[in-house]
Nucleic acid binder design. Structure first.
Lengths: 189, 189, 189, 189
DNA sequence: CATGAATGAGCTTTCATTCAT
DNA sequence: GATGAATGAAAGCTCATTCAT
C-alpha cells in the first residue's frame, strides 16, 4: 500500500486544485487521504507545508525539464520552452492548477519558502527567455523587440492561457499547438 | 459626509484588492469604513453581497464602455475593445484587482449571482469579439483564423497581462500600447 | 444581571486559583461563566488577556494600598506594609492564589504585559522596603543590616508563607500576626 | 555510553527546570535525550512517570542527608537541617527547581504517587523539625515558641527563599549563610 | 531494547452572522 | 438607520500515548 505521506499529498493536490488552498480544510484532506487528522501534522509542519511540497516538486521538475533545451534557433528554443511547460501541464494538470490558483496567494510574501521557490523558478525561466530572445534576434529567427518586455509578455500570455483553460475553464480553447503559435506571434519577423 | 453604505464599499474594495476576499474579515471592513460590524449586515445580505456589489458595478461600467465601439475596421474595433478594458483598468485599478483575484473564487458556481454577473459580461464580450473578428476577416484587416479559438486567446492573453501587472506585479511590463500590440499580433494579416 | 464580562472574570479567577492558568481551558471558563466560547474572545484578546486583567486589577489595588503607609518608625512601616499585603490576601484569596501560582509562569518573559505589570509592582514594593529599612536603621527601630539583602528576604519569606498557606495548604500555619512577627524577627535590634 | 534511560532523565530534568513540567513536551525530551519518542514509554509508564523518578531520587537523597544530623544543640540541629537542604540545592539545582516549580502542580492530589512521595518527605522533615525545636527549647538554645507553627514557618520561609532565588531569580539575594540566619532569627532566645 | 509512524481527543482562536435595542 | 454584544461552528494545530516491528 502507498505510504500515508503520499496519500496525503495526492489528496491535497486534488482538493487544492478543485477548491484552492484556503478553502480546503485539513480535516478534508485527512478524510480524503484516509488518515487521521494528526497524521498530517506528523508528516508536515503545517498545512502550508503540504502546499510547499506539492509546488516544490512541480517546480523542480519543470525547471529540470528546461535543461534539455539547446542549440536551436532562438525562436525554436522559445517554442521548446513553452512546449516543455505544456508537457508538464499535461502530466500534472492538478498540480499546475494548484500553482495557478495560489501563485498570488495569501501570505505569499518574501521569506516564505514557497514564495522563494516560485521566485527562483521564475528567475530561471526569465534567464532562459532573455537568452533565447537575444539569440533569436541575432540569428534572425525573431524580429527586433525589447527583450525584457517581450519575455514579460510571453510569460503573462502563457499564464493567461493556462489559467483560462485549467481554472476558469473557458469553453472553446485552441489546441495546445495553436495556443503556442498565438503566444509566439509577436516574435515572427 | 458620504453615506455609510458607500464607505463600506470603498473599504471593501481596498481590502479585497490588497488581500483577496477570503482573507479579509468583515470586522476589518467595518473598522476601515468606520462603521459598526452590524452595519455591514444592515446594508448587505452578507459578506458575499459586498463583493457582488463591487463586481457588479465594475462589470456594468465595463460593458457600457463597449457600447461606443463601432463602424471601424474589424481590427480597429478589437483594438478599441482592448483599449476600453484598459481604460477601465486605469480608472478602477483596485476593483479590477478584486475581479482578477477572485474570478476563480470560492463558491463561484452557476446559480451564484456574482457568477452569473461575470458570465453575462463574458458572454457579451465574446459576442463582440466574434462579431469584430468576422468583420475583420471580411474587410481584410484580420487574417483568416478560427473565430472562437482566436477570441478565446485574446481574452486569455489579456487576462494574463493584467494579472501579471496588477496581481503578480512582475517587474518590467511593457507599456499598455505595446501590451495590446503583443496581444493582437496573431491577427495581423 | 451581572455583565458577561464580569462573569467571565469571576469564573476565570476561581478556575485559575484552583487549577492554575495552563490547566484551565477556555471551554471550562465559558461553561462556568455561563457564556458561549466565542464570548470570551469578544471581551478579551485571548486567554492570556483574561489572566492579565485579573492580575492587573489585583496589583493595582495592592499598590494603592501601600499609599497610606507613612510617618511611622521604620519598623512599624515595614510591619504596615506586610499587613497591607495581608489585608489584600484576605480580601482576594483567589486572585492572590492565581498570582502565586503563575508568578513564575509560562511565557512570563520581559515584554509580556503581565510580566511588566508584576515587575512594576515588585519595583514599587522594593522601593518602599528600601526606604523603610533605611529609615528604621536611622531611627533605631531596626538593627543594622544590609538593606538590599534584607528586603530580598522579607519579600521571599512573605511569598513562602503565603504560598504554603494558599497553594500548598500545609497544615498548622501560624495566625497572620504571628506569621508577620516571624518574618520580621531578623529586623529586631 | 550512558544508558538511554539515564539520558532521558537528564534531559527531562533540564527541561522541566527551565520550562516547568506541563510546558515540556515528550517530543522535546526525546529530542534532547537523543532517543526516539517511543523509547520514553518503553522506560516509563507515562510523562508523569519521568517526573516521579526525578523527584523521587531527589527526595530520597534529601531525606538520607538528614540522617547524619544529631547530638547537637537543638538550634544547631535545625541549622544543620537547613544546611543539609542547601547542600542538596547546590548539588542539584536543576532537580530542586523542578520540585519548586511543580510542588503545587497539576494532578497533585492524594493517591498520586508523586504526591505521596512529597508528602512522605515533608512528614519526615517536620518530624525532625518538631524534635529539634523541642530539644532546643529544652536545652535553651531556642526560645519558647509554639512548635508546630514555628516548624511551619521555617519550612515556608526556606521554600520562599529558594523559590525567589532559583525560580523567580530575584536580584540581590543574600548569601546562603545569611539566608539561613534570616530564617532562624525567630528562634534566637 | 528500541523505534517512529500513527492516532484522536483536546486545545485556543477566528469569524460571519444574528438580534435586541 | 445603525449598533455592538453575543454566538457557535469550524478552523489549524499539539501532544501524550499506542503498537507493530
Amino acid at each position: 500500500m502507498k505510504p500515508k505521506r503520499e496519500k496525503i499529498i495526492d489528496a491535497a493536490i486534488d482538493l487544492f486544485a478543485e477548491q484552492g488552498f484556503s478553502l480546503t480544510s485539513t480535516a478534508e484532506i485527512a478524510t480524503r487521504a484516509g488518515v487521521a487528522q494528526g497524521t498530517l501534522f506528523y508528516h508536515f509542519k503545517n498545512k502550508e507545508g503540504i502546499l510547499h511540497e506539492v509546488l516544490h516538486r512541480l517546480l523542480e521538475k519543470s525547471a529540470r525539464a528546461y535543461d534539455g533545451i539547446d542549440s536551436l534557433s532562438g525562436y525554436a528554443a522559445i517554442e521548446s520552452l513553452l512546449r516543455s511547460d505544456l508537457t508538464i501541464v499535461q502530466q500534472h494538470r492538478q498540480e499546475v492548477s494548484v500553482l495557478l490558483r495560489d501563485i498570488n496567494r495569501e501570505a505569499d510574501t518574501p521569506g516564505n519558502p514557497t514564495y522563494e521557490c516560485i521566485a527562483a523558478f521564475k528567475t530561471r525561466k526569465f534567464e532562459l527567455l532573455y537568452r533565447f530572445l537575444r539569440q533569436g534576434m541575432a540569428d534572425g529567427s525573431i524580429r527586433d523587440l525589447p527583450v525584457e518586455e517581450t519575455a514579460w509578455f510571453l510569460d503573462a500570455a502563457f499564464y493567461g492561457v493556462m489559467h483560462s483553460k485549467l481554472i476558469q475553464k473557458m469553453p472553446g480553447p485552441p489546441d495546445d499547438t495553436q495556443a503556442i503559435q498565438f503566444c509566439l506571434a509577436p516574435l515572427k519577423p
